[in-house]
């Protein structure tokens, strides 16, 4: 038998397909004619109402499915945009925070603030300013903290070399020092093996010195220098510092 060339084979395949297509076309026509005949023959048969009910239910479910798919698609699109926006904010914030010192200080303060709200809220005492009546009546132009850690009470108050000392104590005998003096007051601070962090206290730059058993916060404004030391968390120290009120 003679072997067919590739072109010849392709031609035969196409002819076959055309023949089969045409045969299918004719079969489709025949099928429609048969259906017409059946419809005439079975004209008395009623389609069950349950089939229509099923179809309505099916459509309801199908439409729900389509709506869910659309919502899911939109949600994915929105979440992608949100993710991009968050990413952009993170990148800009990181760049600004790392490059501008003032922002950096505020940023870390914010983190400290957040941390404090979640971790130290239990030790915060907001109504401890009752001790104000125990302070010397002849003192004027001085500041006092309106927030103290839970359990601290006024222990001692004195003044030396224009520097005012307010000392608080708790039942574990831990002392908390709040010292305020003239702007040129030189507080001696032991920073050996200590970690020093710059912070912002109501717009003033200050430092926190973290030591093993005691933390210190120190800063100054235009008139005075301030110093708080005690066995309390640095976030609490920051809160105490920010709570100062002038009398």
């Amino acid at each position: 038998m003679k072997k067919q060339s590739r072109d010849e084979r392709e031609r035969v395949d196409k002819l076959n397909e055309t023949f089969l297509y045409n045969m299918g076309y004719e079969h489709a026509q025949n099928t429609c004619d048969e259906v017409e005949a059946l419809l005439g023959e079975y004209r008395d048969i009623e389609v069950p109402e349950s089939l229509n009910e099923w179809f309505l239910e099916h459509q309801k479910q199908h439409n729900k499915k389509i709506k869910r798919a659309i919502i899911r698609k939109k949600a994915v699109q929105i979440s992608k945009r949100v993710a991009m926006i968050i990413l952009a904010i993170c990148i800009v914030s990181a760049a600004v925070t790392m490059s501008v010192e003032a922002f950096r200080i505020r940023f870390f303060n914010m983190i400290i603030e957040i941390n404090e709200r979640f971790s130290t809220i239990q030790i915060e005492e907001k109504s401890t300013i009752g001790y104000i009546h125990e302070l010397p009546q002849d003192w004027d132009e001085f500041y006092y903290p309106t927030i103290l850690p839970r359990g601290y009470k006024l222990k001692k108050v004195f003044e030396a070399n224009n520097t005012k000392y307010i000392i608080f104590i708790n039942c574990q005998m831990d002392e908390l020092y709040f010292v305020q003096g003239p702007i040129n007051t030189d507080f001696q601070m032991d920073t050996e093996n200590a970690k020093v962090i710059k912070v912002d206290i109501n717009g003033m730059e200050g430092i926190i010195i973290e030591k093993e058993k005691s933390n210190i916060i120190s800063w100054h404004d235009n008139n005075k220098s301030y110093y708080i030391q005690g066995n309390v968390e640095k976030t609490m120290l920051l809160r105490i510092a920010e709570s100062l009120v002038k009398k």
């Binding site: 397909e17 089969l20 297509y21 045969m23 299918g24 076309y25 079969h27």
Partner: peptide, 9 residues
């Protein structure tokens, strides 16, 4: 006939 119709038509 049906299956050929589905396939080729």
């Amino acid at each position: 006939a049906d299956i050929l119709t589905l396939r080729y038509y």
